[in-house]
Design a protein around this nucleic acid. Structure first.
Length: 801
DNA sequence: AGCACGCCGACT
DNA sequence: GTCGGCGTGCTC
């Protein structure tokens, strides 16, 4: 038998399957979807078996060395999905498969030197081995030993090189202890023990009383002793251990209150019906639920999942990373208890692996997770749900650059089950598809508690400036915050920091401190008094004099959350403030701890960046303030209006979710901009219509598809030349109505000392585009290896900057 | 990617 | 000779 294997060598020339002979002892064991170790060239690499065959067009086949899995880690569906994913995103097959699996299933490669002779070796090697039989290959370089010495020794058969492939899998185990003899033998041993062996006697006495198996940890705690006493008794063979494999459970010590299905409103019922119908009849449709915040989308998800579980099928729920909050998890665990696996980036690699295994082994029927959970290895999917479907975080920003929505829809079609997209502010692409009837549109216009959305007040900051208020807080916002606090209620203040960071500029000569490796201003970090680059790891201390004109008047500009906090303290000294941003949430669990503090009313004001805009639900919050609504409106990104509208709508939903009425203050320099004005009126449909006109005029999605090709090189001219050649090649291969823009320098023209150029393709129908791009890039294969030219392709890019 | 192999110039 | 650097081509 022969196995087709995709090997773990990320190079375009290796992007194909290789045939291997299956040895007798693996016949019948090896199945498609398993990981194997195969010889490749002179070394061993990991690979995925993608298929089995009886013959191969190759005559000299090597043999599979090892099998890494007992059962396939990729189902047939996922094997096929990975192929499609790689081709659709112009990525490598191996990259696509790796992206579908938890980190720990990636192989680790190691080289070792083994000594084969007792005879003495050259001095340098002798001291390297230093009595050992095997040494890590890395030590060769550390010791600075020339390769020719090694080569010679290998030729003479004195030493040999081993190419190891190791799995990173670590399974967590618990040690149990129990007596290995009868009770009366223990008693005998007890009596024989010297009186000085007090701890041993205690241990024995314990097991004489209750000879059952006990967790080692509990035993030690109970008897106040240590591992060493137990070890002594183990050596005397009076006790024995056993190991039990367990899942790490990140939600181990939390109890989730059980919830029941809620009575649906008429609107919800109307939305629910066709979904239930699809589930029942195993039909695939994509439903777009456009529902205002608080309209009960989640309850619809929950009840759809209920139906799916009742049928013995499974469900995937995708949630943006940022809103995968404890509150969200609670809702799903509360309804479905231990049938839920949770996947998000805050879990350790081991925890992620365990959650993944619970899915693989059918211990759970539901997974709630961020983007990559769309690859959960379920085999009987009954529904796929994407909450906040407009979120950028569903688009992976490195290879394979896929969008979870596309993957979900493909899986939904494969399983003939519904896909539900939900949002208060659907992506323009999605709403347009719903308008065209490609998706089924359902609108939830009422909130379940029948409360109106909070009043949104726009504050024109130009007027503030004219009135002599130069602070970042308008008078109106300051008053509202004070009133809110004095009523004993809480406020959330959002600083939209994108494109508005704290750069350093000299007031004397206007010199701006930039990163020496990237064309971007350095960002000032107050707590370390350092200037940092957000694109590479460069940092330097904040200068006291301007490096250009020596003036002392070098200051930081812009507004970070830290400065906002300081300003707020001065303005409203009595306020207790919690700050939430990248800095304060870096530590594990910090995110959750801050939110808990706020929920426990240990603070009056929560201030932070994007991360507080979504998913939070605190009953005591009645005021939301947005400091700078238009800060991203002027970025060179065709989605900036859409993002502004989404953010304002999203954040306003944080106020007055329960009994207390809420209000929203939005500070802006452009209150007349349609995205801000229509957001304040909660009018998505008019925003959609307006924005569609803009997109049509400027030919942007959803009227065209985009592809972005970025070329970078340390050599400026080489990058420009390659980009030019690619653009030329594109022009020649695309149809006349397709537009190729560029090459132009990328928005950040230099990053990590590499010069960057880009070409943008706008197309409506270009069935051969992928293969054309592929062919064009292949021409640079040589150059990409020799020099360090890099070319990346992003089909349907989200982040243009 | 990572490795072997082969060619070349430099050095003891 | 011997050593080390680099370009080339291959991996079932």
């Amino acid at each position: 038998m022969i196995a087709n294997v995709i090997v773990d060598v990320p190079a375009s020339s290796i992007n194909q399957s290789f045939d291997y002979h299956i040895p007798e002892h693996f016949q019948g064991v090896i199945q498609p979807g398993m990981r194997v170790i195969v010889p490749f060239g002179s070394r061993n690499v990991m690979g995925f078996v993608t298929g089995l065959a009886h013959e191969s067009s190759h005559n000299k086949l090597k043999t599979i060395a090892e099998v890494l899995d007992l059962t396939p880690v990729l189902t047939d569906e996922l094997l096929e999905l990975g192929m499609w994913l790689a081709e659709d995103t112009l990525s490598l097959y191996i990259t696509a498969y790796q992206a579908m699996l938890p980190q720990v299933l990636k192989a680790n490669y190691k080289k070792e030197l083994e000594r084969l002779t007792d005879a003495s070796l050259p001095n340098q090697l002798e001291s390297l081995f230093a009595g050992r039989l095997v040494v890590p290959y890395d030590e060769l370089n550390d010791a600075g030993i020339g390769y020719h010495h090694v080569q010679k020794a290998i030729r003479q058969g004195d030493i040999t090189v081993h190419y190891l492939v190791k799995s990173r899998v670590t399974k967590k185990r618990i040690t149990y202890i129990k007596p290995s003899r009868d009770v009366h033998l223990l008693e005998e041993a007890y009596n024989d023990l010297s009186n000085r062996a007090k701890k041993q006697k205690e241990l024995l006495a314990y097991f004489i009383q209750q000879p059952e198996e006990i967790k080692l940890n509990s035993l030690l705690k109970k008897l106040g002793t240590t591992r060493s006493t137990v070890n002594t008794l183990l050596e005397k063979q009076l006790l024995e251990t056993s190991q039990q494999e367990i899942y790490r459970n990140p939600y181990d010590n939390q109890v989730f209150e059980r919830t029941e299905a809620l009575k649906l409103t008429d609107e919800q019922e109307k939305t629910m019906d066709p979904i239930k119908q699809d589930i029942k009849e195993e039909r695939h449709d994509v439903f777009l639920i456009h529902g205002v915040t608080g309209s009960g989308k989640t309850e619809i998800y929950l009840q759809a999942i209920q139906d799916v579980i009742a049928k013995g099928e499974e469900a995937i729920v995708l949630v943006p990373e940022i809103s995968l909050t404890p509150q969200m998890v609670k809702r799903f665990k509360g309804r479905f208890g231990s049938s839920v696996a949770v996947m998000h980036s805050a879990l350790s690699n081991g925890e992620k692996y365990d959650e993944w295994r619970r899915i693989q082994q059918k211990d759970v029927q539901v997974v709630v997770g961020a983007r990559s959970a769309v690859f959960a290895p379920f085999e009987n999917l009954g529904v796929l749900i994407i909450d906040e479907e407009h979120e950028n975080s569903y688009k992976q920003e490195d290879q394979p650059r896929y969008h979870a929505r596309d993957v979900a829809i493909r899986r939904g079609r494969h399983h003939q089950c519904p896909v539900i997209l939900g949002s208060a502010t659907p992506a323009l692409e999605s709403y347009a598809r719903a308008q065209k009837g490609v998706y089924q549109l359902a609108t939830l216009s009422k909130r379940t508690n029948n409360k109106a959305m909070p009043q949104m007040e726009l504050v024109d900051m130009r007027h503030e400036l004219h009135a002599g208020n130069r602070s970042m807080f308008s008078r109106s916002l300051k008053n509202k915050v004070e009133q809110c606090i004095s009523r004993g209620e809480q406020a959330v203040l959002l600083l939209n920091r994108r494109g508005y960071s704290t750069f350093v500029m000299c007031r004397e000569c206007g010199h701006v401190k930039e990163c020496p490796h990237c064309d971007i201003a350095l960002t000032f970090h107050k707590n370390s008094n350092q200037l940092k680059c957000h694109y590479c790891s460069y940092e330097e201390p904040m200068p006291t004099y301007c490096p250009s004109c020596n003036s002392e008047l070098i200051r930081f500009f812009g507004t970070g959350t830290q400065r906002m906090e300081e300003a707020l303290v001065q303005l409203i000294p009595q306020a207790r403030i919690l700050r939430m941003d990248v800095d304060t949430t870096r530590r594990k669990g910090a995110h959750e701890r801050l939110l808990n503090q706020f929920a426990n009313k240990e603070a009056d004001i929560l201030l932070g960046t994007q991360m507080i805009a979504k998913g939070l639900d605190f009953e005591n919050v009645t005021l939301v303030g947005v400091l700078t609504a238009d800060s991203m409106l002027h970025l060179p990104d065709f989605r900036s209006a859409e993002k502004t509208f989404q953010l304002l709508t999203q954040v306003s939903g944080r106020a007055g979710r329960h009994e207390l009425p809420g209000e929203v203050i939005v500070q802006t320099y452009t209150p007349e901009h349609y995205s801000i004005e229509l957001a304040s009126q909660y009018d998505y449909v008019r925003f959609y219509q307006n924005e569609m006109r803009v997109r049509k005029t400027f030919q942007y999605p959803p009227f065209v598809f985009l592809a972005l090709i970025t070329v970078s090189d340390e050599n400026h001219a080489a990058a420009a030349r390659a980009a030019q050649q690619i653009a030329k090649g594109l022009w020649q291969s695309v149809q006349t109505e397709t537009v190729v823009l560029g090459p132009t320098p990328s928005p950040i023209p230099r990053m990590k000392d590499r010069y960057r150029y880009q070409c943008m393709i706008k197309y409506k129908n270009e069935p051969n585009l992928r293969s054309s791009i592929h062919r064009l890039i292949a021409q640079f294969d040589d150059q990409m290896r020799k020099s360090n030219l890099q070319i990346t392709v992003d089909m349907q890019p989200y982040q243009l900057i």
